[in-house]
Structures are given as structure tokens and as C-alpha cells.
Amino acid sequence: MPQTASAFADVAASDAALRRFLHGLPGVDAVGLQARAAALATRSIKTTAKAYAIDLAISMVDLTTLEGADTAGKVRSLCAKGRVPDPADRSTPRVAAVCVYPDMVPVARQALAGTEIKVASVATAFPSGRAALPVRLADTRDAVAAGADEIDMVIDRGAFLSGRYLQVHDEIRAVKAECARPGGEPDAHLKVIFENGELATYDNIRRASWLAMLAGADFIKTSTGKVAVNATLPGTLLMLEAVRDFHAATGTRVGVKPAGGIRTTKDAIRYLVLVNETLGADWLSPDRFRFGASSLLNDLLMQRQKLSSGRYSGPDYVTVD
């Protein structure tokens, strides 16, 4: 039996049990959480530490395009960017993954062939998730079948907010089951998106974190990038704390992915500081931490150029994709 199940065997036995468990988690004081995140944001990361952080951040980027106007051409050029982020400096690390809609998975798969860059696909009627479960599962199945290495699913926020926790839990497990591949092929990894901006309270974010981890999430992710409030430092810090506590309780290491609104190197480094001071070195890896972003990469590249050349770079010295 997985330790997750043994440690929390009865937690998801019923809606009532799950509710009792989630509502029994320690509360979150919003102001205190925000103050802690703000204090960590004042960490000053310079010189060698900054170089390390920039390369680490680049290697953690899930380079993303999730537009209605996406085309095969757009996805291909994004993949090219992910493979060679800075043509002028081949020592630049590659990104962790390219993140697309399910119908673009084959295009990305092909464009990234021969690299270790993962293909991530949003699924489950992203971003709202407002489709019948069979439709959402079919969406997932389609993306997995097309070769997605990673599935970014959304939870049913409506169900969560109306207290139907067991439903949310079981749906995550159902999606997770769709991530399995037969015949020894590695399963797709499951990132569970909460849409923190819609969960509205920190208490909800902590509960959603535990709910998703109990249901088998490999990563928990802040947001779709499609609502007004996306990744925030305090929200991410809280998820990191939940991951820390879950690890302490079960031994299982779950990853965290803030997404949406992270545009600058300064922002990215602040997130890395949160990871470093909450979870430590084990999570300072693309295995356990990702940035869902698109414009962030170019800012990281410009900062990287600045560090190596001593000159400030400009947008004409990085590629637009």
C-alpha cells in the first residue's frame, strides 16, 4: 500500500470524513502569510547566487502558449525557443517543458523530438473545467494518447466551493487514472490546477492542496493564467508549506507550479527563495518546481546576458516567439 493511503487511509472514505479532515487542517492567517512572503521577497540575490538562480529558473520554465489563436506554426516556434532559448549562448539551459492545448500536443511532440523537453498539455476542459466528467476524461485521454508527458488539469472549483470535496477528490483520481500508459511507457504526470484566484481564501488553498495531494497529484499548480488573480507569492508559499507538511506526513514529494503573472527575473528569484527557505534544496529542481510562464523566459535571458557581459541587454537581443 502506498504510504499516502496508509497514513490517511480513512480520510477520503466519505464526504464527511474528507470534510472533517480538510477543515481540521491548521487555519491560515492571511496577514501573517503575506508578511512572511513579503519578508522573503526582500532577500537580496546577487552575483553567483543570481547566476545560479537564473539558470535554475530557465530550466524550470514550462514555456506556455494557451491561446485560441494558437497554430502549429506558433507552437513550433515556441518549441524551437525552448530548445535553444538563447542562440547567442549555447550554454543556456533548456526549458523544462512546452505547455499547449491538447490538439497541439502532436505538433509539440514532433518539434521536441530528440530532446528531454517535456510536452505538457492542459486538459479537462481547461480553463473553466465546466464540462461533464466524461468529456473532461476524454480530453485527458486524448492528450495522453497524443504523447503528452504531463497533464495540467483543473479542478471543479464550483464543486470545491460548494463543499463537494469528495467529488473533487474522485475526479482528480479519475483523471490520474487516464494518465496511465499501458505497456511500460511512463505515465503522464499530473499537475492539478486550483485556480487560487477563484478559491479566494488561503484556507481553501491549503485544503485544495491537501485534497489534490491525497488524490495523487504529482504537482499542484496555482492557476490557469486566465483569471484576474494568478500566481501570488503568498499563495505559492502556502502551497509549498502544504507540500512540506505532506512530505513530513507521508514521505511523498509533490511538486509546485506557480503560473500566470510571473514575468520578471526578480519575480522568479523571489519564488525560488520561497522554495529554498520552505522546502530546501530537494525542491530546487525542475522535477519539483516549475514556472508556468511565457514572457518570463526572455527576461531571464536578458538578465543572463547582463551577468555574462556586464551590460544591460534589450528586447532586440532576445527572440520573440
Binding site: P93, E116, K118, P186, D218
Partner: peptide, 12 residues
């Protein structure tokens, strides 16, 4: 969780 191996011309 199975590590997602870092990708890139050189390792992270």
C-alpha cells in the same frame, strides 16, 4: 513522484 528529468543542452 518520478522525477521529470531536467532538460537542456547542459544539465540544470
Amino acid at each position: 513522484a518520478t522525477p521529470i528529468t531536467p532538460a537542456g543542452p547542459r544539465s540544470a
